[in-house]
């Protein structure tokens, strides 16, 4: 970090709990929805969909920021397997509610929030430090 830069800028957003809990980790941002079945490798916790912006990138242990789920009804089952394999994200922030993402977040059992009062794709960049306090519905972003 250069001398010219100000000290880390902290942004706080308020939203709604989807799954309770609290976690802090580096953000991984995808502006594209993610598939379960056929879209991720549950052993590595990585995106495998061809042409996807996160193709080959692991979300294990990250705060995954993305619009939500797409694809097969096997979505929750694959994210469930990520939890069992220890490759689930540390927390999730998403913007588009569907049955796939809701059930997937529940069985992943990681702190998850939605309906935040700011544009997460504008405010959060991959590498930012993000705390998700899902019970309070509060996301705190410390810019990198």
């Amino acid at each position: 970090m250069s001398e010219a830069q100000a000290k880390p800028r902290v942004i706080t957003l308020k939203g709604r709990k989807v799954v309770g809990g609290k976690a802090t980790a580096e953000a991984l941002v995808s502006t594209q929805t993610i598939s379960g079945w056929g879209g991720i490798n549950e052993r590595e916790g990585s995106v495998i969909e061809l042409h996807h912006q996160l193709n080959g990138v692991s979300f294990a242990g990250k705060v995954l920021v993305f619009p939500g789920a797409k694809g097969s009804s096997g979505w929750s089952a694959y994210w469930h397997m990520c939890r069992l394999n220890g490759t689930a994200p540390a927390a999730m922030i998403f913007t588009r509610m569907t049955t796939k993402i809701a059930l997937g977040a529940v069985v992943s059992r990681v702190p998850t929030v939605t309906d935040l009062d700011g544009d997460v794709f504008e405010l959060i960049e991959t590498g930012d430090l993000v705390e998700v306090d899902a019970d309070a519905g509060v996301v705190t972003i410390t810019k990198r």
């Binding site: 009804s73 089952a77 049955t99």
Partner: peptide, 8 residues
């Protein structure tokens, strides 16, 4: 029906 999953 919605699109349900294995657990639901």
């Amino acid at each position: 029906t919605n699109v349900e999953g294995k657990e639901s």
